[in-house]
Computed example of a mutant assay.
Amino acid sequence: MSTTRRYAGMSADDRAADRRARLLEAGLEVFAASGANGATMTAICAQAKLTERYFYESFTSRDDLLRSVVDAVSDEIRTAALDALHSPADNVEAQVRHAITAFVNVLTDDRRKGRVAMIESSAVESLRAHRRESMREFARLVAAEAHELYGDHALPEPESEITGLLFIGGLAELVVAWLNDEIDVTPSQIVDAATRQFVATTHR
Rank of each mutant, 00 (worst) to 15 (best):
S34Q: 10
A21G: 03
G169P: 09
E125H: 07
V185R: 13
V104M: 14
L82C: 03
M118R: 13
T42I: 05
Y150C: 11
I44F: 05
I183P: 11
V69K: 05
A72Q: 12
I100W: 10
V104D: 06
G38D: 05
D181K: 13
R20S: 04
V73H: 02
D110Q: 06
N180D: 12
N105R: 13
T202V: 06
R97G: 00
V70T: 09
D71K: 09
S58V: 02
G169W: 08
L127A: 13
S87K: 09
T186W: 11
P187Y: 06
N37S: 05
A36H: 03
L23Q: 02
A81E: 11
V30Y: 06
R196P: 00
R112A: 15
V175S: 14
R97S: 09
S188A: 14
M135D: 15
A99Y: 10
I44P: 01
A143H: 11
A146M: 09
D192V: 02
L23I: 01
F59N: 03
D90W: 11
A94P: 00
L166K: 10
A144N: 13
H153D: 14
V199R: 02
N37Q: 07
F167M: 08
A8G: 01
D90H: 13
S160I: 06
P88M: 13
V116Y: 08
G170Q: 13
H203C: 08
Q189F: 06
N37K: 08
D152V: 07
D109E: 14
L24P: 01
E76I: 03
R112Y: 05
D152A: 14
F55Y: 09
D90G: 10
Q47N: 07
A139W: 10
D192C: 03
L65S: 03
A123C: 09
T108H: 12
A123V: 02
L179H: 10
S61T: 05
M1I: 03
A143L: 08
F138H: 15
F31H: 00
E157V: 06
M135G: 13
A129I: 09
A172P: 00
A154C: 12
F55L: 08
A39G: 00
D18A: 04
A194D: 09
A177C: 13
G35T: 01
E25Q: 07
V73R: 01
A193C: 05
F59R: 06
A80L: 04
G27E: 02
G170S: 13
Y54F: 09
W178H: 14
A144E: 14
I100G: 07
T42L: 08
T202Y: 03
S11I: 02
A139C: 13
Y7I: 05
D90R: 15
A32W: 02
A36K: 06
S2P: 05
S134W: 08
A194T: 04
E157D: 15
I168A: 15
L166D: 08
Q197T: 03
K113S: 12
A146F: 09
K113D: 01
I168S: 15
R132W: 11
S68H: 10
E137S: 15
D152F: 09
R15W: 04
R53E: 11
